[in-house]
Design a protein around this nucleic acid. Structure first.
Lengths: 150, 150
DNA sequence: TGATTTTAGGACACGATACTCTTATTTGCA
DNA sequence: TGCAAATAAGAGTATCGTGTCCTAAAATCA
């Protein structure tokens, strides 16, 4: 399938729901429910994002996750590279492992142009553009609704 | 990594080296060596391509593989869909599994445009455009060189 | 302090992709 | 006819992405 890994999609979905510095910590359970990501798997991804310095975590009651920077300052490209690593572009959309011979790829030039275009898009788009989505994610919740979710 | 699977790249690389109807059958070992694909793995892919009706096979002495149609008539899109299946587009370059809420993907419109552009490219490009690459692939070979290869 | 809430971290399972190896089976040619 | 060449077929292995589960540790609050 022509796409980055699901994990990257999950990371963007989840980060798009978080508040910036000074906001409220959001429980991973709410994130998971709202974004439809398996909760234990998302928990792992959040830990990676914490290690990479994207999110701040707080344990215990009223704990959860928070962005370390404001969403206006975080580009999609940063998130992509944090999860996929620097080689996310791969070089060939067709899946030719390493195009050692340009004649081997009938769309060599097209791939280069496309990947440049896509990277430019990723670099120009910020998490803040998911604001409308973020607002739908619950932050405080009743005990009964919590039992239903978890 | 943002690409189709390696198998698709392998299929295109290999098919790009084959003759059309009436040409010579090419040994999978030569294909593998020339394209730098693991020979047993390529052998499996060739069998899939044979099942799908893209290549003709001949066993035994002087056997090998041949395209069933002329390379001018075979588009990249056909090969992609044969190996990846019809859902190769996935819908979201970022890897968001199923974009149930357009607000969830900050580049929803961009993805749609890009995938349309890429599909158009795949549909317009033919295997015959790999002619220069194909010519470098050995068809007949000495026993000593064969030992070295296999 | 103790109960509750929440993340941290690791073990494990499962399927897909990528790759290897061995044993048929078919074909051409001497 | 028999040998050698070549694909067919399928079992086996490794790794990775995805997902589940359990226990430990930390933080809050009564």
């Amino acid at each position: 399938m022509l796409s980055l890994s699901q994990s990257t999609g999950y990371a963007i979905l989840a980060m798009g729901c978080l508040d910036g510095p000074g906001g409220v910590y959001v429980h991973v359970g709410y994130l998971a429910k709202y974004t439809r990501i398996p909760v234990h798997y998302l928990s792992k991804i959040m830990r990676i994002l914490a290690e990479k310095g994207f999110v701040e975590t707080k344990r215990g009651n009223k704990g959860g996750f928070l962005l370390c920077r404001f969403p206006e300052e975080i580009t999609l490209l940063e998130v992509v590279e944090a999860i996929e690593g620097p080689d996310w572009k791969g070089g060939c959309l067709l899946g030719i492992p390493k195009v050692w011979d340009k004649r081997a790829c009938p769309i060599y030039r097209f791939c280069q142009e496309e990947l440049r275009r896509i990277e430019k898009e990723f670099r120009s788009r910020k998490l803040s553009e998911m604001e409308n989505f973020r607002r739908g994610c619950p932050r405080t919740i009743t005990p009964s609704r919590r039992r239903e979710i978890m």
